[in-house]
Design a protein around this nucleic acid. Structure first.
Length: 416
RNA sequence: GGAGGGGUGGCCGAGCGGUCAAUGGCAGCAGACUGUAAAUCUGCCGACGAAAGUCUACGUAAGUUCAAAUCUUACCCCCUCCA
């Protein structure tokens, strides 16, 4: 074993480790169970998405090895907006929006971490609790004096904003200081000595480590994970319809499962290490699988992640839907995870196929639906149809029709 | 405060009075091939319309013109240099 800490060993094997401050001292520190480490989130949306999964699973691992994850939601820092390595300024949210988003994010975290009062139970804190009450002059005197602007300007995360066509407002420039202050507060209030984050957070994290050292002359640690990219270098978790959300309200378990079922061959093993509880040895044995059989592993990957995120009981209906949709041209009427569209028999004559496609939300505009029809991507019960198609008033088998757009999007039209 | 450069479709980026719903690339959608993968090839890719066509759009607002993304003015925002 490379490290004294079992957590570090597993984290590095599974691909969570990008860089850290003083690794040896951190290893020593983590060799004892019950340590505290925190991860901060801004709450710009009401759900987390796949892009947040790496640090979440990292904290899950942290907890598995007997440590205590502290989840910090940025109720205060969200009002500033992290400018790190981004070329757009984030919109600033209102207090109501932040409150709303915070509820959503809490519920996103629950499936992944065990919350409670026990030694290694996760806790949730909100930096608005201290940031909202800061007073400008005392803060500058107490904290601001430790920051060198020269040094702050030298961080990669800031440099990106100092190039052509970008601007860094003073508001955003302060983000780094507040995040550093968060670390200091968590250190002094609850003896939290590790901050986790994506590699883009490095500059902010290092600032916090330095601040704690200057204020307390104690050492705290920063640990970053690699950013999640697909094998072709793109950001993961974005699809045509937007981010791959973790909350049921924003993305169904079925679609969530499909996302993982469809990942690139080259990413399967990597994702298996990161986002499943499957033992390392077992994943090692999967590494040699190539070609068609890799599909089996993708199913396993999708099952494992989905059962963590949405519960094991969500798998059965998903599998049922998958076998109906992809493996036989058969019965969809009993499958609950296929979206349905109810159509009154009396309005069939006035309803075109375009109306159904738009009303069901498959296409946003009528033009888009027409394009889809013209390119031959619309099928009724498996047969390609065009714009002229009318929905028949009497059906041969039951009261449902399967409308398919492309190979993967399906809708059940239920006549009533 | 002064001087200069810039703001174009989801993103990047051409265009600089009519032929511009706007070249090209990326992203996206559909089809072929396949393994619900990738790569490749083909078609599509502002809205409404069966179509002719109409409407809306090149930072915002006015104006010049038969005609404006393109010219003028004011304003907003960004960048660079000077104070």
């Amino acid at each position: 074993m490379k490290y004294k800490s079992s957590f570090l060993n597993e984290a590095s094997i599974r691909g969570f480790f990008y860089q850290s401050t003083n690794l040896e001292a951190m290893d020593e520190f983590l060799a004892t169970r019950g340590r505290l480490g925190y991860l901060g989130f801004d709450i710009t949306a009401k759900s987390l998405h796949v892009g947040h999964l790496i640090p979440i699973f990292l904290l899950r691992l942290f907890q598995k090895h007997g440590h205590k994850p502290v989840m910090l939601v940025g109720g205060g820092t969200t009002k500033i907006g992290d400018p790190s390595l981004k070329n757009t300024t984030r919109p600033i949210l209102t207090d109501e929006e932040i409150e709303e988003n915070m509820k959503g994010i809490k519920s996103c975290l629950v499936p992944f971490l065990r919350f409670g009062n026990g030694e290694s139970d996760a806790v949730l804190v909100n930096n608005a609790d201290w940031l909202d009450r800061l007073e400008y002059i005392p803060f500058l005197q107490e904290i601001g004096k430790y920051f060198s602007v020269n040094r702050m300007l030298s961080f990669e995360s800031v440099k990106a904003k100092l190039t052509d066509n970008n601007s860094l407002s003073f508001l955003e420039f302060n983000y780094m200081i507040l995040q550093a202050y968060d670390f200091y507060r968590l250190y002094s209030d609850m003896d939290c000595r590790i901050q986790f984050g994506g590699q883009d957070q490095w500059g902010n994290i290092v600032c916090g480590v330095e601040l704690v050292r200057k204020k307390s002359s104690n050492e705290v640690f920063g640990f970053t994970n690699p950013l999640l990219t697909t094998s072709d270098g793109k950001k993961m978790g974005k699809t045509a319809s937007g981010a791959v959300w973790l909350s049921k309200e924003m993305l169904s378990a079925y679609d969530f499962w499909q996302y993982w079922r469809n990942v690139d061959d080259a990413d399967v093993i990597k994702l298996m290490y990161l986002f499943t509880d499957v033992e390392i040895d077992e994943i090692k044995r999967m590494e040699s699988v190539r070609g068609k059989e890799l599909n089996e592993i993708k199913v396993r990957l999708a099952d494992e992640i989905t059962s963590i995120a949405h519960g094991r009981e969500s798998l059965q209906p998903i599998h049922q839907a998958v076998s109906s949709v992809f493996e036989s041209d058969g019965e969809l009427s009993s499958v609950t995870s296929i979206p349905r569209y109810n159509l009154k028999k009396s309005s069939i004559n006035a309803t075109s196929i375009i109306d159904v496609i738009v009303a069901s939300g498959i296409c946003v505009t009528r033009s888009e639906a027409k394009r889809l029809l013209r390119s031959g991507g619309v099928y009724m019960d498996g047969a390609s149809v065009d714009e002229e198609y009318r929905i028949p008033e009497t059906l041969t088998n039951g009261d449902t029709l399967k409308l398919s757009c492309g190979k993967k999007k399906h809708l059940l039209i239920v006549l009533e």
